[in-house]
C-alpha cells in the first residue's frame, strides 16, 4: 500500500488456485479498502462453483461504505463463455465516485453496448432451475472431476497440491528439491511437445516462482486420468538423480 494505491482487486473464487476466501479474510480486505479509500474490485466470475459446502460470499454484502465494483457473468457458472455476456455491479457510496462513473460511462459508449443476444440470455440464465448445482454436488461432473484430478496428482512424487474449494482449477507445486525447474514456461512448452498436454505455467498468472502450474478440471474423468498420467511420465524425466525415493529413467 502506498499513497498511489487506487484499488484493491480480490479474485474470489480464485483462478488459478481454486481457493474460496473465508468471511474473516474478506472483511479484513474490505476494511483495508475502507481505511485507505481504495476502490474494491471483486472478480466473482466463479461465484456459484463451490464444493463440499464452501461458502462464496459476495464482498459487496460486507459493507455499504466502500465503493465496490463486483464482476460476474455467464461464462463459468452458466457455461456460455462464447456469448460474451458479463456485468459489473456498482455498490457503496457512489456519490464519491461520480466523475469516475461518468468516465466509465464514456468508455462504455465507445463500444455502443453489450451484444443484445447475450443480454437476452442473462434473464434466462439467472432465473429458474440452476443446473450448476447438480454439477458441483457429489456425483456431479465438476465434483467428480475435481476429486479424480486431486487424487491422481497427489500420487505423483514431489507434487504438492491443495484441494480446490471452488472454481475449476488446481495449482500444484512441484518440489524444487526433486524438480529443479528454471523456467516454468519452458517446462509447460516441453510438456506440450512431448505429451500433447496443455497446462498453464504459474508465471502466466504473475505468480512469483517457477514451481507451479495450473490444471483445469473441466475435462472428463477419463481424460483427466490419462492427462495426469502423461504429466507423471513427463515429470519422471525431470527428477534429479539424487531424489531420495529413487528415480526412473527419462523416456
Amino acid at each position: 500500500m502506498t499513497d498511489r494505491t487506487k484499488a484493491l482487486v480480490v479474485i474470489n473464487l480464485n483462478n488459478p488456485t481454486g481457493a474460496v476466501y473465508p468471511k474473516e479474510i474478506l472483511e479484513a480486505l474490505v476494511d483495508i479498502a475502507r481505511r485507505h479509500n481504495l476502490i474494491l474490485m471483486a472478480d466473482e466470475i466463479y461465484e456459484k462453483i463451490t464444493y463440499d459446502g464452501a461458502e462464496a460470499i459476495n464482498m459487496c454484502t460486507l459493507a455499504d461504505d466502500v465503493f465496490t465494483i463486483t464482476y460476474s457473468g455467464l461464462s463459468k457458472t452458466w457455461r456460455a463463455a462464447g456469448f460474451r455476456s458479463g456485468w459489473c455491479y456498482i455498490s457503496g457510496p457512489q456519490y464519491r465516485a461520480k466523475s469516475y462513473l461518468e468516465g466509465l460511462q464514456l468508455m462504455s459508449n465507445l463500444r455502443m453496448c453489450p451484444n443484445v443476444p447475450g443480454q437476452h440470455a442473462i434473464q434466462t440464465a439467472l432465473g429458474g432451475y440452476q443446473s450448476i448445482d447438480d454439477l458441483i454436488a457429489p456425483g456431479g461432473l465438476l465434483h467428480e472431476q475435481r476429486q479424480v484430478a486431486y487424487d491422481r496428482l497427489r500420487e505423483i512424487e514431489g507434487v504438492q497440491v491443495e484441494q480446490m474449494d471452488g472454481a475449476m482449477y488446481l495449482f500444484p507445486r512441484l518440489d524444487p528439491e526433486i524438480y529443479p525447474i528454471e523456467s516454468d514456461e519452458a517446462f509447460v512448452i516441453e510438456l506440450l511437445r512431448q505429451q500433447k498436454i496443455l497446462v498453464s505455467h504459474g508465471r502466466a498468472f504473475n505468480w512469483i516462482d517457477d514451481q507451479h502450474f495450473r490444471l483445469v478440471t473441466l475435462p472428463a474423468v477419463a481424460e483427466l486420468e490419462s492427462a495426469i498420467e502423461g504429466i507423471s511420465d513427463f515429470l519422471a524425466g525431470y527428477r534429479t538423480p539424487s531424489a531420495p525415493h529413487g528415480c526412473s529413467e527419462a523416456g
Binding site: 460474451r84 451484444n115 447475450g118
Partner: peptide, 9 residues
C-alpha cells in the same frame, strides 16, 4: 485480452 467476438453473432 477480451477472448473473442461473441459466438452467436
Amino acid at each position: 485480452m477480451r477472448m473473442c467476438a461473441n459466438v452467436p453473432a
